[in-house]
Amino acid sequence: MKRVEIFKTNIYRMKDAQRIVATLVSLFSSYKINFDLDDEERILRIESSQLEIETNSIVRKMFEWGYRCERII
């Protein structure tokens, strides 16, 4: 079963988004992760085909790195 979580962020630069994606993929290798920086909410999209997505861990990591990240329900 495919699972998807969408987060609102304050990421504005593609360089930051690429670095965050690379780091998150290294921590959560089974996730497919991307940003939509053209969206006004600077969307972080995470998809998993097998595992439950660890939303709290994602939000906490982003906060630790100095970014805002809020799950959109």
Results as ranks from 00 to 15, higher is better:
residue 66 G to S: 09
residue 9 T to F: 02
residue 67 Y to P: 00
residue 65 W to S: 08
residue 71 R to V: 01
residue 69 C to I: 01
residue 44 L to G: 00
residue 56 N to R: 12
residue 63 F to K: 15
residue 31 Y to Q: 04
residue 23 T to M: 10
residue 16 D to Q: 15
residue 14 M to N: 13
residue 1 M to C: 05
residue 6 I to C: 07
residue 42 R to K: 15
residue 35 F to E: 07
residue 25 V to H: 14
residue 19 R to Y: 08
residue 59 V to P: 00
residue 4 V to G: 00
residue 42 R to Q: 12
residue 43 I to F: 13
residue 33 I to C: 05
residue 63 F to L: 07
residue 56 N to H: 09
residue 66 G to W: 06
residue 70 E to V: 07
residue 45 R to C: 06
residue 49 S to V: 04
residue 31 Y to P: 00
residue 65 W to C: 08
residue 32 K to C: 01
residue 51 L to Q: 14
residue 6 I to E: 05
residue 57 S to I: 03
residue 64 E to C: 12
residue 2 K to T: 09
residue 48 S to L: 09
residue 65 W to F: 09
residue 28 F to Y: 15
residue 14 M to Y: 10
residue 17 A to I: 06
residue 55 T to N: 11
residue 51 L to M: 13
residue 33 I to P: 00
residue 23 T to D: 11
residue 7 F to R: 04
residue 19 R to E: 13
residue 5 E to M: 12
residue 2 K to Q: 13
residue 29 S to Q: 07
residue 2 K to N: 05
residue 32 K to F: 02
residue 69 C to E: 05
residue 45 R to Q: 11
residue 69 C to D: 05
residue 64 E to F: 10
residue 41 E to Q: 11
residue 69 C to W: 01
residue 13 R to K: 15
residue 63 F to C: 03
residue 56 N to C: 03
residue 36 D to C: 09
residue 2 K to H: 04
residue 16 D to Y: 14
residue 6 I to D: 01
residue 22 A to K: 15
residue 11 I to H: 02
residue 6 I to L: 14
residue 34 N to D: 13
residue 18 Q to H: 12
residue 22 A to S: 12
residue 52 E to L: 08
residue 61 K to L: 15
residue 27 L to A: 09
residue 34 N to V: 03
residue 73 I to M: 05
residue 67 Y to F: 15
residue 16 D to N: 15
residue 65 W to A: 10
residue 20 I to C: 02
residue 50 Q to W: 09
residue 6 I to W: 08
residue 12 Y to A: 07
residue 69 C to G: 04
residue 15 K to I: 10
residue 70 E to T: 12
residue 29 S to T: 07
residue 31 Y to E: 02
residue 45 R to F: 03
residue 27 L to R: 15
residue 66 G to R: 11
residue 72 I to W: 08
residue 46 I to K: 01
residue 14 M to K: 12
residue 54 E to L: 05
residue 59 V to D: 02
